[in-house]
Design a protein around this nucleic acid. Structure first.
Length: 507
RNA sequence: GGGCCAUUAGCUCAAUGGUAGAGCAACUGACUCUUAAUCAGCAGGUUGUAGGUUCGAGUCCUACAUGGCUCACCA
């Protein structure tokens, strides 16, 4: 590892410390109080002249000859330190001034007092290096601004940008609130495989990997859906999973290669039940973490209170474009309706995909307040149950807020023979060039043949909910380590990596 | 993948085609109640990479890399 000038200067201080018998990386240090705990009891501790032990990172440092002020930060807060040559001792004082740098983690012992200007301060009697930092922190005022540097060195971003750290605390609370809600409703949290021999449950292209010993190709899951429904077959009536899905698709401000999905399934429920559950869950989460169901996002006020409007896809498209997809029920009719109205929509190979395109183009951007779009054309939904009175459509809904899709749900298709036909249809789509089509999953069909109760299923993109509740416009601001392209100097060596059996790792 | 923009010291940013600078951080020194401490001094660069134009390129041109915005693809 090559050290730059600044790192070398700090490395020399390691030797300086060792030369006088101080370990710059001691195995442990003493801590009697977090900084927040010290602040909470500050006046009492000050009155009792109690000695406390504090640890933290040195963020500011002002040596003034025989005394030094500094600021120490731990996860709970920030406090000023005061060291004087007289009280800490000339040798220890000199060592502090000579060997500490901004960014070092140090341990101090002392007692609380107030300075002349009234600032709560720790009067340090002993100090010790807890972990020397060789790389300096960014500019103490300007911080780290460069987006790429912030994402590649997220640990620095978290250290110097308080709002970023707060945002990820909020994310943790959001995920916990989802769990609390579902647990409270009697859902059982389960873990299903991430390595799938057959991929399915969503329209997406998968990542391919390989098990060496079993000589078996495996896919990183694109959804947990099909396994969770097997559990409903197995007698669990309410299950959920919060975990990563992986989709081999483009990355943009609302898509990351791997992302966190919450999926839940409830036996003897249908999509209407799932709509009520969705509204209740999202408002619960918002209340828990923000204390309100009215949020502001990029200047737009969004009211999350239930109930949310339910609009059929047919009505939504009709309202926005004047086209009744029920009347224009073939690709040719729909195409001519679109032409007649001079709408700008890409051509699509099937009627259903053209409907989807029409919706994405003319309806979705207008859905600012939370809205359920319900009753989708069947060919877009290979896992959803048909509407009994209208079998070309299925009992399905998607949730839209601020023009973005937050979730997807349906009454689950539990007729194994219909499901088999749907898979066959997907196979034909795949052969016709639809890379997102699902694979035939015989094992899943066998599960359905054992009997899946009428079931409602729901999937919610957790990252998108976090974006909404933290007022962020890009997904990478709510993912700690979002996927970034490799840096070019590592690229040539990395592509040489091969597994021993000759299977090239999928890059 | 297309279009546009950016890339200069560890960080934040300057620099009509004419000797690459500042603040913070570092280093040397002064200073025992500071608050982005102050003061004096000193050092730090293959201007993202590779080419090209030019007497001369951080600046103009081309390609590439990474990032940003945007469009497309994609739930």
């Amino acid at each position: 590892m090559e050290l730059n000038d600044l790192q070398q200067a700090r490395a020399q201080k390691l030797e300086q410390l060792r030369a006088v018998g101080h370990d710059p990386f001691p195995p442990r240090v003493k801590r009697s109080h977090t900084i927040a705990a010290l602040r909470d009891r500050f006046s009492t501790l000050e009155a009792e002249h109690t000695t406390v032990e504090i640890v933290g990172r040195l963020m500011l440092r002002r040596p003034t000859g025989g005394s030094t002020f500094a600021q120490l930060v731990d996860e709970t807060g920030r406090i000023q330190l005061f060291l004087s040559k007289k009280d800490v001792g000339p040798a220890a004082y000199k060592l502090f001034v000579d060997t500490t740098d901004l960014g070092d983690i140090i341990a101090v012992e002392g007692y609380p007092f107030h300075t002349k200007t009234g600032e709560a301060t720790l009067f340090v009697q002993h100090w010790q290096m807890a972990a020397k930092a060789l790389t300096p922190l960014p500019d103490k005022h300007a911080g780290l601004q460069d987006t790429e540097a912030r994402l590649r060195r997220r640990y620095v971003d978290l250290l110097v940008n308080d709002d970023v750290r707060e945002r990820f605390r909020l994310r943790a609370q959001i995920v916990k609130a989802f769990r609390d809600y579902l647990d409270g409703q009697g859902f059982v949290e389960v873990e299903t495989p991430m390595l799938h021999p057959v991929y399915g449950g969503a329209a997406a292209r998968p990542f391919l990997t390989h098990h060496n010993q079993l000589h078996q190709d495996l896919y990183l899951r694109i959804a947990s859906e099909l396994y969770l429904k097997r559990l409903i077959v197995g007698g669990f009536e309410r299950v959920y999973e919060i975990g990563k899905d992986f989709r081999n698709e483009g990355v943009d401000r609302s898509h990351n290669t791997e992302f966190t999905m919450m999926e839940c399934y409830q036996a003897f429920a249908d999509y209407h039940d799932m709509m009520r559950l969705t509204e209740e869950m999202i408002t619960y989460v918002a209340r828990q973490v923000l204390g309100t169901t009215t949020i502001e996002y990029a200047g737009e006020v969004v009211k999350l209170d239930a109930p949310w409007p339910r609009i059929t896809m047919r009505d939504a498209i009709d309202e926005s474009t004047g086209i009744d997809i029920k009347m224009a029920a073939t690709l040719e009719q729909l195409t001519s309706e679109i032409r007649a109205r001079h709408l700008h929509v890409d051509t699509k190979p099937t009627w259903a995909k053209l409907v989807d395109e029409l919706f994405s183009e003319y309806v979705q951007p207008r859905l600012q307040q939370p809205t359920f779009i319900i009753d989708y054309p069947q060919p877009l939904s290979p896992l959803a149950k048909r509407i009994a009175s209208d079998p070309d459509y299925v009992e399905r809904f998607e949730i839209f807020v601020l023009g973005s899709e937050l979730g997807n749900a349906f009454s689950e298709l539990n007729d194994p023979l219909d499901q088999e036909q749907r898979f066959l249809e997907q196979g034909r789509d795949y052969a016709a060039g639809d890379d997102d089509a699902m694979q035939m999953d015989v094992d899943y069909l066998q599960a359905l043949m054992t009997g899946l109760p009428p079931t409602g299923g729901l999937g919610i993109g957790i990252d998108r909910v976090v974006m909404l509740l933290t007022n962020q416009s890009t997904i990478r601001e709510v993912i700690l380590f979002p996927h970034l392209r490799r840096l070019s100097d590592t690229q040539s060596e990395a592509t040489e990596v091969e597994q021993t059996d000759g299977e090239i790792i999928d890059h």
